[in-house]
Design a protein around this nucleic acid. Sequence first.
DNA 1: AAGTGGTCTAGACCACCCG
DNA 2: GGGTGGTCTAGACCACTTT
Lengths: 260, 260
Amino acid sequence: MATMPPTPPEASVADAAQATPAFSPLYQQIKSLILQSLETGEWKPGEAIPSEMDLAARYRVSQGTVRKAIDELAADNLVVRRQGKGTFVATHSEQHVQYRFLKLMPDSGDRDDEGPAQRTVLECKRVRASAEVARALALRTADSVVQVRRVLSFSEVPTIVEDLWLPGNAFKGLTADQVAGYHGPTYAMFEVEFGVRMVRAEERIRAVAADSTIAALLGVAPGTPLLSVERVAYTYNDVPMELRRGFYRTDTHHYRNELN
Amino acid sequence: MATMPPTPPEASVADAAQATPAFSPLYQQIKSLILQSLETGEWKPGEAIPSEMDLAARYRVSQGTVRKAIDELAADNLVVRRQGKGTFVATHSEQHVQYRFLKLMPDSGDRDDEGPAQRTVLECKRVRASAEVARALALRTADSVVQVRRVLSFSEVPTIVEDLWLPGNAFKGLTADQVAGYHGPTYAMFEVEFGVRMVRAEERIRAVAADSTIAALLGVAPGTPLLSVERVAYTYNDVPMELRRGFYRTDTHHYRNELN
DNA sequence: AAGTGGTCTAGACCACCCG
DNA sequence: GGGTGGTCTAGACCACTTT
């Protein structure tokens, strides 16, 4: 790499232009090169990336260095290793953990017991970003955004009502049918239909009283305490690509979190 | 290790009795040996553990294998590495992240801006475990537990009221003064005074309406929506050592969570 | 200068998966 | 059997901290 001290003979990645001027360990530089290829879609969600040996040859470093780079990518859930098969680009489809970002669990039993959520899309329209939405999505006020409102039911019981705001640019042509009809997680649909891969998210959780609209949609009395979950989901490079606010009933479910 | 295949010449840890009968990689076995020493208190919170070289010699494996074991312990927050100085047993004291398990944040600014929480202990008494408490703490109903009720205020505003239940056996002699007067996190006090180290926790979060008691303590109207945060904290080996239920005001604060 | 963790390499073998 | 990721070793040097 361009910034390497002259330690190993031949360890110069004679490749494309360097995008990492600051000094960092070799494996970090390899990591960001791999990251670039993920961003540009050289390897697509669900596909295998080249083997460690191939990558080592490509970047002119040892297998161990590539390994350490991939280790970190795997720890970040950007990539999944499967012994004997290869390393694969992570995807919200087929990933055994359906609903990776949904932490609401039934009070007893697994989420699998209830089967998949039933989705009812109430609204899907193009609007101008409010100041709040613009701030969360790093847009300018009045930029075009797609707004979706939907209800999620578990075992026929409406449990979540949520609004989604998506940058209009990246989600041109999104329809209510797409949101409602896709089999599998909505984030998987975003990958397939729009090439947008959500990589991480941040949530702010509050307790609020249901207003009459939300109460009617959830079939509870107005004033019922609900969890308000505000989520910003990010693609690569910490670019925000979705704002979501959900109201969760917590009479039969709870938000589960693990602390380390 | 006893279960090693005959690969490396001399890789038999001619040490104490094996506690890991099942097959597993060498570094995993080393990891659990280190873990045992942490549990038994051979190295105490805040102290340095032996250097990688020393551990490699002690277990008769290469430095790289010890390194990988320690890497995992560091990822689990059981141990902290400091380049040039050594590897240290993690502690809730002096750990730069004060309040490692408290995810409630002021809506604007850092938690440091408010300074440390003011604690008011309302109650600290020995009681018999209810069925619910017994289940959470893996005790028998009517076993002795210590129950604490306290209020946490930020910037003079009462924001959290929480109840703690602790196994009576491990927390003999806990007093209200100890809980209120200790400088630093309560979990740090548990380490110093009772040798109990909390290693991870699970939380179940719900939205509930404040009853009149809680409302009075928090200075809000009865019926105000509050976050109910139920936490079980574990020491080593997944042994539960604390049940805690907190009611959080979320008018000026929010529960912040990061999803990966 | 000495000691610690951190990086990098090179080579060997193991465990797993598939054709 | 050949490919992939996973483990283990041995040795070199770097970066940081302390004496």
